[in-house]
Deep mutational scan, measured.
Amino acid sequence: GLEHMADEEKLPPGWEKRMERSSGRVYYFNHITNASQWERPSG
């Protein structure tokens, strides 16, 4: 619901949600550090 939507907005600075086109899996990418990970970043 709306709570989940708001929660997605609160990623740490630099992080954004991305989708891997080949598999459709969602991952997280940090455009500041060029880091990427499957787990939702905390902090």
Rank of each mutant, 00 (worst) to 15 (best):
G1D: 13
G1W: 10
G1Q: 12
G1F: 12
L2P: 12
L2T: 11
L2C: 15
L2M: 11
L2F: 14
L2W: 15
L2K: 10
L2G: 13
L2A: 12
E3C: 15
E3S: 11
H4V: 13
H4L: 13
H4R: 09
H4A: 13
H4K: 10
M5A: 14
M5R: 09
M5F: 12
M5H: 11
A6V: 13
A6C: 15
A6W: 11
A6T: 12
A6M: 10
D7T: 10
D7S: 10
D7R: 07
E8V: 09
E8I: 10
E8A: 10
E8R: 08
E9I: 08
E9A: 09
E9F: 08
E9W: 07
K10Q: 14
K10T: 13
K10P: 15
K10S: 13
L11R: 01
L11A: 01
L11Y: 03
L11I: 05
L11V: 06
L11N: 02
P12Y: 02
P12H: 02
P13G: 06
P13W: 13
P13Q: 09
P13D: 09
G14N: 07
G14R: 01
G14P: 09
G14A: 05
W15K: 00
W15G: 00
W15P: 01
W15Y: 01
W15N: 00
E16W: 03
E16D: 03
E16N: 03
E16R: 04
K17E: 08
K17M: 11
K17W: 05
K17D: 01
K17H: 04
K17I: 10
R18F: 06
M19W: 15
M19E: 08
M19K: 09
M19P: 02
E20P: 02
E20A: 09
R21A: 15
R21G: 14
R21D: 14
R21P: 15
R21T: 15
R21L: 15
S22M: 08
S22L: 13
S22V: 14
S22K: 14
S23N: 06
S23K: 04
S23M: 04
G24D: 04
G24M: 06
G24R: 06
G24P: 01
R25K: 08
R25S: 03
R25G: 02
R25D: 03
R25N: 04
R25A: 05
R25M: 05
V26R: 04
V26A: 07
V26Y: 14
Y27H: 02
Y27L: 03
Y27M: 03
Y27T: 01
Y27F: 07
Y28T: 00
Y28I: 00
Y28F: 06
Y28S: 00
Y28M: 00
F29S: 01
F29Q: 02
F29E: 01
F29Y: 14
F29R: 03
F29M: 02
F29W: 07
F29I: 04
N30W: 01
N30V: 01
N30T: 01
N30A: 01
N30F: 03
H31W: 14
H31S: 12
H31K: 13
H31E: 06
I32E: 08
I32Q: 08
I32K: 08
I32N: 08
I32Y: 11
I32T: 08
I32V: 09
T33F: 05
T33P: 00
T33M: 05
T33Q: 03
N34A: 07
N34K: 14
N34V: 03
N34Q: 14
N34M: 12
N34W: 07
N34S: 09
N34T: 06
A35V: 15
A35R: 14
A35Y: 08
A35I: 14
A35L: 13
A35D: 07
S36Y: 12
S36I: 15
S36V: 15
Q37M: 06
Q37H: 03
Q37R: 05
Q37I: 05
W38D: 06
W38T: 05
W38N: 05
W38A: 05
E39G: 06
E39K: 06
R40Q: 05
R40D: 03
R40I: 07
R40P: 08
R40N: 06
P41R: 00
P41G: 01
P41W: 01
P41T: 01
P41I: 02
P41A: 01
S42E: 10
S42F: 09
S42C: 15
S42L: 11
S42M: 10
G43W: 14
G43R: 10
G43T: 12
G43K: 09
G43I: 13
G43H: 12
G43M: 14
